Amino acid sequence: MTSDLDHFGQAKYVSLTTFRKDGTPVATPVWVASDGDRLLVWTVTDSWKVKRVRKNPKVTIQQCDMRGNASGPVVEGHAEVLDDDGTALVRKAIKRKYGITGTVAINASLLRRGKRGTIGLAVTV
């Protein structure tokens, strides 16, 4: 499965699908970066996807474009909400992968929301 994660880690956007209490899937396009045997996702701390992951860590991932139009295989996995150190690792990985765009987005978010305003997720398959 590592090759699947490498494939997703190289994609510009990945559709991360989380599940509501009633099982309804909710897909969201996100930036991701590879970190060994997991994918790192950076998102807003109080987003619904984070709330859903805390209740149900089951997720699916699929390559997509920036609008969320999915393509390619769907892979099932589990997501974990990361602590402060894990989130710092995610920020570094996103900056490294997305270059100036990622750096500007993260720095602007840090100014606007502070360090606790965004959080990292780790997805394993």
Results as ranks from 00 to 15, higher is better:
L16Y: 02
T18N: 08
T18K: 04
F19K: 02
R20K: 15
R20Y: 00
K21T: 10
K21F: 02
K21A: 15
K21W: 00
D22F: 01
P25S: 10
V26H: 08
A27V: 07
A27Y: 00
T28H: 05
T28Q: 05
P29H: 06
P29I: 10
P29N: 05
V30Q: 09
V30E: 05
W31C: 10
V32W: 00
V32R: 01
V32S: 10
A33Q: 02
S34C: 05
S34M: 07
S34L: 15
S34I: 10
D35T: 04
D35N: 14
D35E: 13
G36D: 06
G36R: 08
R38V: 05
R38F: 01
L39G: 06
L39E: 05
L40I: 05
W42L: 15
V44F: 09
V44I: 15
S47Y: 01
W48E: 15
K49M: 04
K51H: 12
K51Y: 01
R52L: 15
R52G: 09
R54Y: 02
P57S: 12
P57Q: 03
K58M: 09
K58E: 14
V59C: 10
Q62W: 01
C64W: 03
R67F: 08
G68A: 09
A70K: 13
A70M: 12
A70R: 13
S71P: 00
G72T: 05
G72K: 01
G72E: 07
V74D: 07
V75D: 06
E76R: 11
G77C: 11
A79N: 10
E80L: 11
V81S: 08
V81Q: 10
D83W: 04
G86C: 08
T87H: 07
T87F: 03
L89G: 11
L89H: 08
L89C: 10
L89E: 14
V90Q: 03
K92R: 14
K92W: 00
